[in-house]
Each structure stands twice: as structure tokens, then as C-alpha cells.
Simulated assay, not measured.
Amino acid sequence: MSTDSANNRDRSASTRERLLAAAVEAFATSGFAGTTTRDIASRAGMSPAAVYVHHATKEDLLFEISRRGHQSAVEIIEGASRRSQDPVVRVRTMVEEFSRWHAVNSRVGRIVQYEFDALTPEHRAEIAEYRRAIEALMREALEAGVEAGVMTVSDTKGTSLALLSLSIDLVRWYHPGGSTTPDDIAALHGELAVRMVGATA
């Protein structure tokens, strides 16, 4: 590959990232419906026409933000679930890390959680797969706890959704820079999770 080709590819990738960052800011501020392609282009310091060189539609930008956000969340949950074989520690850690991620990435989290319906059916189906994977990991940890006799959970599916909601819903009210830190939220939610599952160890 020539140096010119490599430089052009690097510039193209850099431009795509600028547009995605601008879209995050715009969607987080005005919502998907309230944001125009012109808004995104302006935040990125580009012309509206330039957006379409890299993304076919505004929805494509939303999907890419959502896809990346969900992939990152899946990695966080998977990593947390592998840290311990103790079901109680596993659930606590998963909730802590999931909450910390949503606090640190609250703007992206707000977009990926609350603009789901703005995606096309095909894109919603792909994002739904990531969500099912996250829920399945939490449900497996609860089932392990019940089987080991260290948790009291009558509905593992419903409880897994409730535990994940602790993390997901914080993006509605959390704002970085306040007196409550991501670590504070993670510790609180981890403790609440242990109480919610009736842990005995």
C-alpha cells in the first residue's frame, strides 16, 4: 500500500470518528429526532454533504454508536463474570462494573438505551442480540447462586432485568463532575444487588 493510500485511509477514519463524536454530543443534547444532519456536521466542523460521504443516513450514525456501546457493555459484563467462581461475588462485580461503565459513559449510555426505537428493524434486531447476551450472563450467575444455595431468587429472568436496570437507568439522572463518582455508584449498586438476591454468603 502506498503512503498516499495509507494517509487517505487514516484521514477517512479520523473523519468518521469526528462525525461519531459530534453525533454523540448532538443526540445526547437534543435526542435523535431533534437532531439534524446539519447539526452533526456543524459540531464536526464539516459541511452537511460531507456527512453522507462517510454515513449514508443519520440513523447509520445512531446504529454505529449503539453497536459500539453495546459491544463495550458486553465486554464489561463478560470480564466481570469471569473474575470469580463465587456466585455472589460474580453478581456484585457484574453490577458494579456495568454501573461504572454507564456512569463513565453516561452520554453514550443515554443514547444507546433510549434511542433504541429510532433504529431500523434490522439494526434493532442486531442490538437486541447484544442485550440478550448481557441478560443471559446475569441470569446464569443468578442460577448458579440459587443452585449453590447462596441466593434466594424465585424469578431469575425478572431479577436479572432488575439488576441490569440499576445500571441502565442511572443514565437518566447521572451527570459527570458531580459529588457522586462512578465508583460511588458502582459500590452502592453492588451492595444493593447483593441484598436484592437475598445472598447468604
Rank of each mutant, 00 (worst) to 15 (best):
M1R: 10
S2P: 14
N7A: 15
N8H: 12
N8K: 14
R11E: 15
S12I: 07
T15I: 13
R18G: 02
A21G: 01
A23Y: 10
F27C: 04
S30M: 09
G31L: 14
T36K: 12
R38L: 09
D39E: 11
A41N: 06
A41E: 12
R43V: 01
A44C: 09
A44L: 11
M46F: 14
S47D: 14
V51Q: 08
V53R: 13
A56W: 09
A56N: 09
T57H: 07
K58D: 07
D60A: 13
L61Y: 07
E64Q: 13
E64M: 08
I65W: 08
R68V: 04
Q71P: 00
A73K: 12
V74Q: 08
I77S: 01
G79Y: 06
A80Q: 03
S81V: 00
R83T: 07
D86Q: 03
D86H: 11
R90C: 12
R92H: 04
T93C: 01
T93K: 05
M94A: 00
V95I: 15
F98Q: 03
F98L: 06
S99D: 03
W101F: 15
H102A: 07
N105L: 02
N105A: 03
N105R: 13
V108Y: 02
V108E: 14
V112D: 01
Q113D: 09
D117N: 11
A118Y: 14
A118H: 15
L119T: 04
L119D: 08
T120P: 04
P121I: 04
H123S: 10
E126T: 10
A128M: 09
Y130V: 00
R131M: 13
E135R: 11
E135A: 11
A136M: 06
M138W: 05
E140Y: 00
L142I: 07
V146H: 03
V153C: 01
S154H: 06
G158Q: 10
S160W: 09
S160Y: 08
L161E: 11
A162W: 04
L164P: 00
L164W: 03
S165K: 10
S167F: 06
I168Q: 09
I168S: 10
I168E: 10
I168F: 06
R172S: 01
W173A: 02
W173H: 03
H175Q: 12
P176T: 05
S179E: 12
P182N: 08
D183N: 07
I185L: 15
G190S: 07
A193H: 07
A193P: 01
V194L: 14
R195T: 04
V197P: 01
G198D: 08
A199D: 05
T200F: 09
